[in-house]
Amino acid sequence: MRPASALLAPALLAATTASVLAFPVTVESCNRQVTFEAPPTRAVSNDVNLTEMMLALGLADSMAGYTGVSEWVKLDERLRESTGALPELSPDYPTKEVLLGADADFYFAGWNYGMRVGGEVTPDTLAAFGIKVYELTESCIHIMEKPKASMEDMYNDLLNLGRIFGVEERAEALIADYRQELADFIASLPTAQTAPKVFVYDSGEAKPFTAGRYAIPTALIEAAGGINIMDDVESSWLEVGWEPVIARNPDVVVIVNYGQVTAEEKITFMRENAAFKDIPAVVNDRFVVLDYVEATPGPRNIEAIKRLAAAFLPS
C-alpha cells in the first residue's frame, strides 16, 4: 500500500510541505507576541464576523466550531452555507469548560468580542490549557493604545490568521482583492461638496450605544465619504447621552441591525421622539441599515462601505 502522502496530488503535497516548512511563526496580537509551532487543528472563533473571517480564508476544516452568535444575531443564508456542519459550541461568550470540552487548541476572539478584561476567558487563563489566543485588532484599544480604526485593522487580522494557519498566500490574495475593490469603488464616487455628519445607532433608548473613534464604523463611514460625529470620542463601542447626538446634528443615522429590537423599531423610535424632530437625519428620513456582520470588522466591510456611500449621496 502506498503511503498516505503518495495519494496527494503533487500541487497539494507541495503546498502542504511548504506550509509545514513555514513554521514556527510568530504574530503580534495586541501587545503580545504569540508563536505557533504548527497550524491549529481545533480552532474556535467567537462572534459572527470573526467566524466569517476564518471561513473566508477556507479554514473550516481546521475548526472545532464557533461561539457567541445566536444569542445576538442569526446566521444569514451566506453564513449558514459557509459554516456547514460546524457546531455552535455556545450561543454567548464561551466558558473555559466549553473550550476545553471542544478540545480547542486556538481561540480567535477579541476584547468584548468573546473576552472581557479580568474575565475567566483571556489569553492568560487559556494558556495554562495549551489554548493559544489571537485577539481582534479593533478590540486592542481596551488594553493598549492604538491608532484610530481603519480598514488596516481588518486586513491585519486576515494576514495574521493566514500566517497562523499556514495559508499566508491565500490571505494576501484576499486582502489584495479587497484593497482593489475598495480603491476602484472610491475612485468611482462623485466628488462630494460636504461630508455628511453620521451617527451610528447600535442600540439603547435611555442612552444610545454607538461607535467612537476606535470602532470600525468610523473607518467605514470615512471610506464612504462621511464623518462619524463621535470621531473625537476616545473609545471604541460605548454608551453616550442623547444630548451630544442632538447637539452634533447628524445628517445620516446608521442603524446596526441585530438583537431583539429590529432596525425598523429603532428608526421608528427616532422618528417619533420629539427630542429628535429637528435633527436633519430625521427631518429628511436619512437612515441606512447595516447588519451586525457588516458593522463589525470582517469580510463584509467593503459591502458596508458601498451601502453607506449610496446613502450619503445627496437626494
Rank of each mutant, 00 (worst) to 15 (best):
P40Q: 06
L220S: 02
F23K: 02
F199I: 06
R78M: 09
Y178H: 15
E272R: 08
V117M: 13
L55F: 01
G84W: 04
Y155V: 04
M230V: 10
P10H: 02
V73L: 08
A102Y: 02
P24E: 06
F269L: 12
A192P: 05
V200L: 12
L136V: 11
F276S: 08
P244G: 06
P244V: 09
E81L: 14
I216A: 01
L136E: 09
L136Y: 06
A206F: 07
A64P: 01
T67V: 00
E37A: 14
E71L: 11
D105A: 03
G130L: 06
T17I: 13
E28H: 13
K96N: 07
I267Q: 09
C30V: 08
N112F: 12
P297Y: 02
P40Y: 05
F199T: 02
R32D: 14
V25E: 01
V98H: 13
M144A: 11
G225S: 04
E234C: 15
L86E: 00
T95H: 13
D184G: 06
R248D: 10
Q260S: 12
E88K: 08
R80H: 07
M54N: 03
C140I: 08
F199W: 10
L238E: 15
L21E: 13
N284V: 12
Q180D: 11
G212T: 08
D278R: 12
I267K: 06
F23R: 01
V233M: 13
R213P: 06
L313R: 10
L161E: 02
Y292H: 04
A38L: 12
E272D: 08
G212N: 05
K277P: 12
F269K: 05
E120K: 13
N160A: 15
A109C: 11
L50G: 00
T122K: 05
L12I: 09
P87S: 07
Y66E: 00
R179I: 05
A192T: 05
S70R: 08
V133W: 04
S62D: 15
A171I: 04
A274S: 15
L50D: 02
A295E: 03
D103M: 14
Y113L: 09
E239V: 15
I175Y: 00
N301D: 06
A195M: 09
G114S: 02
V34A: 11
A60V: 02
V117N: 13
A309M: 01
K146H: 10
F276D: 04
N257Y: 11
D124L: 13
T194H: 12
A247K: 15
F36G: 03
R248M: 14
K132Q: 11
V289W: 05
R179L: 09
T191Q: 14
S45Q: 02
S235D: 15
M53P: 09
V252Y: 03
T268C: 10
E145S: 13
S150A: 11
Y93G: 05
V289L: 05
Y107W: 11
A104E: 03
A4P: 11
T191A: 08
L55D: 00
E168H: 07
F129H: 15
V256I: 15
F36L: 07
L12A: 15
V34T: 03
E294R: 07
P314G: 06
V48Y: 05
I227A: 10
D47Y: 09
S62L: 10
P91G: 03
A4W: 14
L189K: 00
A263P: 01
K74R: 12
I305G: 00
V167P: 00
T41C: 10
N257C: 07
N249C: 14
W111D: 01
L86D: 00
G101Y: 10
E205D: 13
